[in-house]
Amino acid sequence: MSSNTTDFPQIGLFITCLVDLFRPNVGFAALELLERCGCHVKVPIKQTCCGQIAYNNGDINNSRLLAKQLINEFDSCDYIVAPSGSCIGMLKRHYPELFTHEPDWQAKAQNFADRCYELVSFLTQVQGMTQVNTRFEQRVTYHDSCSGLRELGIQMQPRQLLNSVSGLTLIEMKATQECCGFGGTFCVKYSPISARLLADKVAHIQATGAQVVLAGDMGCLLNIAGYLKRLASSIKVYHVAEVLAGRANISAIGE
């Protein structure tokens, strides 16, 4: 990691696969939020998948290869930030575990992990952001993703910033901390269980009377948006960064 000689931290923005392929607006929202709080942001061109899918399915060799590439690509950054709790959970919690038999790489992986943050937790806990100058006149509810909540302790951080959005009314759903049923390949391997979890989650969302559901992970958002669309629901789905950055002025996820 290079030594930062300015007052502004050098942030490596890790876009993630789902943002890149399905919702680039989330990446632009993340960039805008980081720049608002004085960060210098770079987006390494050669970044690829974090290897989470391979890791969760036991493909440790390819997980290590992807991890090494990502670690090298972000080596010059003071922090690595991503709009995804699940991807950062992989980088922060599991990268060091991949290299228990390679001490040099384990040290690199731990150094890398110590610099990794989910977007909203970085804004609030590292940069000290307490509010945003944004308006969003909607009733919203927030879904806590499993990885963000359980691996990273992300719960109050998004709510703190959402409560500063002008016109926004935050309504908590029942069992907000329960899984939406996505879980990466879990929804494929255990589809009946996944479908039941998703149906329960959407029922809780609908019961709030909210017009919009937000979360910090694209996997959860795509899963929830798909089910709401099949129900012909009018509830819109956005990544929390889109609302915080004032970029929820485009079609919602799944539309």
Rank of each mutant, 00 (worst) to 15 (best):
A29R: 04
Q69I: 12
R196Q: 13
R196K: 11
A252Y: 13
V140F: 12
Y238L: 09
L222G: 00
V240N: 06
R115D: 05
E118A: 09
L149R: 07
S234E: 15
L66A: 10
Q138T: 08
A207V: 00
N249E: 14
P9D: 04
G89H: 11
N61E: 15
S166H: 14
G184Y: 13
V26P: 08
G216W: 02
I171P: 02
A175V: 00
I171D: 01
I235W: 09
L222M: 15
K201D: 03
V237H: 08
Q52R: 04
T176V: 04
N25D: 15
E35V: 08
A67F: 11
M173E: 03
T100N: 14
A67D: 02
M1I: 13
H143M: 01
L66S: 12
E102C: 00
G183N: 08
G219E: 11
S234F: 01
F74S: 05
V120N: 02
N111G: 12
M90G: 02
L197M: 15
H143L: 05
A203H: 10
V81T: 01
R230A: 09
I60N: 04
S121A: 10
V132W: 12
V212M: 03
T130S: 11
Y117P: 03
R23W: 12
C87W: 07
S76R: 04
Y95E: 06
F122T: 11
F112A: 09
K229Y: 13
F122M: 09
G12H: 10
I71V: 14
Q138Y: 15
F74G: 02
L18H: 08
K108F: 02
E97V: 00
C179D: 04
L66C: 07
M1L: 08
Q131W: 03
S145Q: 11
H101G: 00
F112D: 07
S166E: 15
R159H: 12
L214S: 06
G38K: 05
Y190F: 10
I15E: 14
T5V: 13
I224M: 12
V212F: 08
G216F: 01
N57Q: 11
F99T: 07
T6H: 02
G246A: 07
T185D: 06
V188A: 08
P44W: 14
G51P: 12
S234W: 01
S121M: 00
P83L: 02
D7A: 02
L33Q: 07
G167A: 06
G183F: 07
D114I: 00
L162Y: 11
L197C: 08
G254W: 13
I224H: 05
Y117I: 03
M156P: 00
A245Y: 14
Q69K: 15
R64G: 04
A232H: 15
C37I: 08
I71N: 04
P9R: 02
D7W: 03
K108S: 11
G226Y: 10
I154D: 02
V188Y: 05
G246N: 10
F22S: 09
L21C: 10
M156F: 13
A29V: 05
D20V: 03
D200T: 11
S145W: 05
N4K: 03
K229L: 06
F28H: 12
C116E: 01
Y95H: 10
C180A: 01
L65S: 13
S194Q: 04
G89Q: 12
